[in-house]
Design a protein around this nucleic acid. Structure first.
Lengths: 229, 229
DNA sequence: TCAAAAGTGTTCTGGATACACCCATGT
DNA sequence: ACATGGGTGTATCCAGAACACTTTTGA
């Protein structure tokens, strides 16, 4: 199969920065490259966009193929198109970032045929291509977005404690938060539903579980809401 | 000249949403298409990315070629890649938005060989391709960004009055602002330099002129600043 | 009874908002 | 003199920040 064009075209790829939360650590999912260039180096999952495939679909497909993940929160990040970012030829990459509930997926990704592993975001090896830069931009975006959009919940299980939520925000923002103020503000949004359950199997007082009220958020979002942590 | 590839590739373009301020109105620069598809319809300036050209460079080149603009503030917006957004073939477009000091460029753009004109952003004709959507996203972005980055100054001449600045913010945010509070806040940033000049040729008390202190802003930006209007 | 984390209230401060009048200038 | 926009100060309110102790539970 071969096609020809009047003018040369850049190749188009998608790359995904997949974030997960492991206890109190923010992690990113990387895969080890099996082919040149950068064979053996860790990289972001990604690949070529097909000609009959929307960008978001390409990102989801690559994510599924390379890491087994599906049904995750996914949002476009930025498009990287510097000359020379791929040593073979001109490649423009539309980067996405994804947020996954890590509990479900931890093992799967690590035992896939393709070698994949979670790394603490501040302790990654030198990545292939310009993926270090992409990761940095994704972290910046996450840090900014989490302050005015309740996307953090995408990283938590459906039922969570306020302490888990606080640790999440602390991990993303990279600074400690005051417990009382945090709880006041989190509950003050009115977007947390108090459940009649507590966490299990802990060696201390069990914390109450909450869930995120997505419906309510979506309703608020319609008519000029405002969410902040 | 013809090239061939193993797999078909989407074509890659850039499109630019160029904003300018005309008195108190926010305007966008459009060009009339001379070719099919959408011949005769208004569209955003843009065109194909060359294979040896960075994305930003492509955006600047197209802007210069189609509108005569150069040296403007330009930032990547979002990449649009839905299927069918171009009726001919698969085209992915990296959209940019630009901010220009309209005074300098008003005539030039309108008298270029190619027909180009400024339209009030809330009174544009139906645009070619998905350019209505791109424009909407750009407006959203501008509205958000102007609140925490002093990019508004890119739309004003180097010397401006506080009333001009206020009208600019009112135009972008689409709501009136209190004069006293606005001045307090604007001056409170410490980023405005009071000049020993006043505006000329007005039929009332002449307002003092200010300039934006870009150096100071860049210094602040380095070590965790914070700018808000 | 001890360890470990859950849970809770108040004070203070600073920025956001709301609001109305006098001033300078050109016609 | 008058019309036009320039320029200024204060009171109120609310959200954010700072801060420490008691409670519950399992080991």
């Amino acid at each position: 199969m071969s096609v020809s064009y009047e003018h040369p075209r850049p190749a188009l790829t998608v790359d995904c920065v997949v974030f997960g939360l492991d206890e109190a650590d923010l992690k990113v999912l990387l895969i080890r490259r099996e082919l040149d260039p950068f064979r053996g180096r860790w990289a972001l999952p990604g690949g070529f966009v097909r000609v009959e495939e929307a960008l978001d679909d390409a990102a989801r497909r690559e994510l599924a193929e390379e890491t087994g993940l599906s049904g995750v929160f996914l949002e476009q990040l930025y498009t990287f198109g510097a000359l020379g970012r791929d040593p073979r030829e001109r490649v423009v990459s539309v980067a996405y970032y994804a947020l996954v509930k890590l509990g479900d997926h931890r093992v799967k990704a690590a035992t896939d045929a393709r070698e994949a592993a979670w790394f603490a975001v501040d302790d990654t090896p030198a990545l292939a291509f310009d993926h270090d830069e992409i990761l940095a931009v994704a972290l910046e975006r996450l840090k900014g977005k989490v302050r005015y959009r309740p996307i953090g919940f995408e990283l938590l299980p459906p039922k969570f404690t306020l302490s888990q939520l606080q640790r999440l925000y602390e991990a993303i923002l990279e600074r400690p938060l005051d417990k009382r103020n945090f709880r006041k503000k989190a509950l003050g949004t009115g977007l947390l539903v108090e459940l009649d359950e507590v966490e299990q199997d802990v060696a201390h007082r069990a914390a109450r579980l909450y869930r995120f009220d997505r419906r309510k958020y979506e309703r608020l979002e319609k008519d000029g809401f405002s969410f902040e942590i």
